[in-house]
Design a protein around this nucleic acid. Structure first.
Lengths: 331, 331
DNA sequence: ACTATTTGTTGAATCGTTTTCATTCCGGCA
DNA sequence: TGCCGGAATGAAAACGATTCAACAAATAGT
C-alpha cells in the first residue's frame, strides 16, 4: 500500500538498518550510502510510519493536555507555555477536551494507558483526588492551574488563598468594609481557596464575616449579573465586590452599569484571571493575574523530567501571582 | 516492563490469540476462556498497547484538528461538533495549535503523514492552496470555517460573501448610506469574502464605493478602536460600521462609547461571529452567526466517509448563516 | 606480515498487537 | 463405526520501524 522503509532500502540498494541509521542521523554510515538513501527517500516521497517507530522505542514524544473546553480563552497562554517547554525537548503537545464529563476525561486518559502519549497534564480535572492519585502511581500525570486536596501528583498552580486574600486586602486598604463575594456553587479547589482567602482578609482586618454578602452562582457572566443585582438590593449593600473570575466580574459590572452605579467610586470591582476582555470592557477591570505561560512551561518541564526519572517528583509548586490595578478600583 | 497481552495469556492459561479475541469481543470463544481472560485482565490491570494495535490495524481512530490557537473561543463550538460526529463513529478528536506559523502547521501535519492520526481538519490554515491541494491528494485532509481559492480539498464553511452582503444590506435597509468597514490588513479568505459582500451590497443599492470608509487593521479589539476613531474623524463620517469580527466590533464600540456616540441610533454597528461577549457587552451587538457546531459535525462526518472511500469527496459545502439583531442596530 | 582496532554493513530479533491458517475436539448423522 | 462440520484454540505471520550481534573490509600499530 504505502511506502515503507523496505522500499527505500531496496531503491537505495542498502539494508533497512542502514536506512534507519541515515534517517536517525546515526554514525557509521558512509557518505555514498547516506546519499543514496536520501535520494530514494525523496524520490519515493517516503515518510516513516511512527506507529512502527513508537512501538519499537516505546515512546511517542507526545504530551496530552486535557482541558474542559477551548471556550475559556484563558487556557491559551498556559498551552503556549506547555508547547514552548515541550518543543524545546522535542515533544509535541496535543489537546483534548473533557466536555466537563469525568467519564470522558477517563477515556482521554486512556491515551496515556494505551501508550498513545507519553504523559498527560490535567487542567482543571473532573476526576477526584483519589482516582488521580492512584493513576499517578503508574503513569506520567501532572496537574496545572488547579490543585486537589490530598492528591499525590505533580502540580503547578498559584496560591489561590493568598491571591484571594491579596485582592480583598487591597479593597480593604481602599477603605472598604462591606465587601461582597461572587463565587460559584459547584466549586473547583481554586474557587474554594479564593473564598478562604477572602475570609482570611476580613478576619485579619477585624471585619465581621457577613454571610449575606456572598453570592453562589455559576461560571457564566449572567450569573455575575444576577449576583450583583442580589447584592446591590441588600438593605446594607456592599461597597466593593470581589468576583472569583473576570467573566463573572464583567457580568456583575453589567448590572452595575445598567443601574447607574458609579463603578470605581461608589462600588469597587475586583476580578480574577486577567482575561483579554478585562481591559477591553469599559471600565477596565482590576484583577489578579496568574503567570499562565510560566505555569504551562513549568509543568511540562517537570513532567518530562519525571518521565525519565524513576522516582517522580510529586510536589506542589505555587508560582507568584500579581494584582493588576485598573479603573474599577479607582486606579 | 509493563504488562502485555502475553502476560494476560499466561495468567489466563490461554493463547494471546484468545485474549485478543476476548478483548475485541469476537465470536468463537468459550465462556470459560472469556471469563478467565477477563479476570486476568482485571487482576493484572492490563490495558492494551495501542501502538501495537494501531500498527497492526494501520489505523488509529484519531482525527487531528489544527487551529491557530485556543484563544478564539469561537472555535469551541466547532470542535464540539467535530467531537460529536467523531464520537458517533468511534473516533477521537485531538487538537493542536499552529501558533500562526505555517512551518509548525506543516510539522503538525506530520502526524498525518506518519500515520499517528487517520485524518486532519484545518481550521484557518496558514499554508497556501497549492500546498494543501497537493497534500490532499495522498492524505485525508479537510478544511473548516475557511475556504481557499483553487484548493482541491474537502471544505465545509459558510458563504461569507453572502453573509457580508446580508449584513450590509440590513444596514442599508435601515436607511444608512455611508457604511464603514473595519477589516484586517493580513486577510484570510473569509475576510476577503466579507469585504466582497460589502461591496456587492453597496453596488446593488446604487451606493458609491468610498475607499476612505474602509479601515485595514488587525484582529485585535484595539484595532477596532483605532479603526472607529479614524472613521469617526472623517469629514463625512459614517452612519453605520460593519466589522468583520465581533472582537473588532467591540473594540470599535469602545471608542464610540467613550466619545459619546449614540450607538444604535446615530451610528449602527454590525459584527461577525456571535461570540459570547457580543451579548454580554452593552449595548448588545448585532452580528452574523455561523452554524459552528454543524460545520464541525459535517466536516468530520465527510472526512470519515472519505477515509473509507477510494475516490474522496473534495467539494465545497456552504452552510447557511443567520443575522442576529440586537441593540446596536436599534433592534 | 600479522594482529588489533575501527568502520560500514547486514540479517535477524524485537516491540505488542491482530489475524490467518491449521489443528483439535466433539457431537450428529448415515 | 466412520465421516463430516462446526466451534474453540493456538502457533505463527504479519504490521513498520529500531537496534543488537555478527561479520567483512579497511586501516593502524608493532
Amino acid at each position: 500500500m504505502s511506502i515503507t522503509i523496505k522500499d527505500v532500502a531496496r531503491a537505495a540498494n542498502v539494508s533497512v538498518a542502514t536506512v534507519s541509521r541515515v534517517l536517525n542521523k546515526k554514525s557509521n554510515v558512509s557518505d555514498d550510502a547516506a546519499e543514496a538513501v536520501n535520494r530514494a527517500v525523496k524520490e519515493l516521497g517516503y515518510s516513516p510510519n511512527f506507529l512502527g517507530r513508537d512501538l519499537r522505542k516505546s515512546e511517542t514524544r507526545r504530551i496530552l493536555a486535557i482541558i474542559a473546553s477551548t471556550e475559556q480563552s484563558f487556557y491559551s497562554e498556559v498551552l503556549r507555555g506547555m508547547e514552548e517547554a515541550a518543543s524545546a525537548k522535542g515533544y509535541d503537545v496535543i489537546i483534548a477536551t473533557t466536555r466537563d464529563d469525568p467519564n470522558h476525561e477517563m477515556h482521554l486518559l486512556g491515551m496515556l494507558f494505551s501508550r498513545s502519549v507519553d504523559g498527560a497534564v490535567l487542567l482543571g480535572p473532573k476526576l477526584d483526588a483519589a482516582t488521580i492519585s492512584q493513576l499517578a502511581e503508574n503513569h506520567n500525570i501532572a496537574m496545572c492551574l488547579e490543585r486537589l486536596e490530598n492528591c499525590k501528583v505533580l502540580t503547578v498552580t498559584i496560591d489561590n488563598v493568598k491571591a484571594g486574600k491579596d485582592a480583598v486586602n487591597y479593597l480593604i486598604n481602599k477603605g472598604r468594609r462591606r465587601i461582597g463575594l461572587i463565587t460559584t456553587k459547584l466549586r473547583s479547589q481554586s474557587s474554594i481557596d479564593r473564598e478562604i482567602g477572602y475570609r482570611q482578609a476580613l478576619e485579619e482586618n477585624g471585619i465581621p464575616y457577613d454571610e449575606s454578602l456572598i453570592f453562589y452562582g455559576s461560571y457564566e457572566a449572567e450569573s455575575g449579573t444576577k449576583g450583583c443585582e442580589a447584592l446591590m438590593n441588600l438593605p446594607n449593600r456592599p461597597d466593593a465586590i470581589f468576583s472569583i473570575s473576570d467573566m463573572i466580574a464583567i457580568g456583575a459590572m453589567n448590572y452595575a452599569l445598567s443601574s447607574g452605579i458609579d463603578i470605581g467610586k461608589e462600588v469597587l470591582f475586583f476580578g480574577f484571571d486577567d482575561i483579554q476582555y478585562s481591559h477591553i470592557f469599559v471600565p477596565h477591570l482590576s484583577t489578579v493575574r496568574q503567570p499562565c505561560f510560566l505555569q504551562g512551561k513549568m509543568v511540562v518541564e517537570k513532567l518530562i523530567e519525571n518521565m525519565k526519572s524513576d522516582e517522580p517528583d510529586k510536589s506542589l509548586y505555587m508560582l507568584p501571582h500579581s494584582l493588576i490595578l485598573r479603573e474599577t478600583t479607582g486606579d
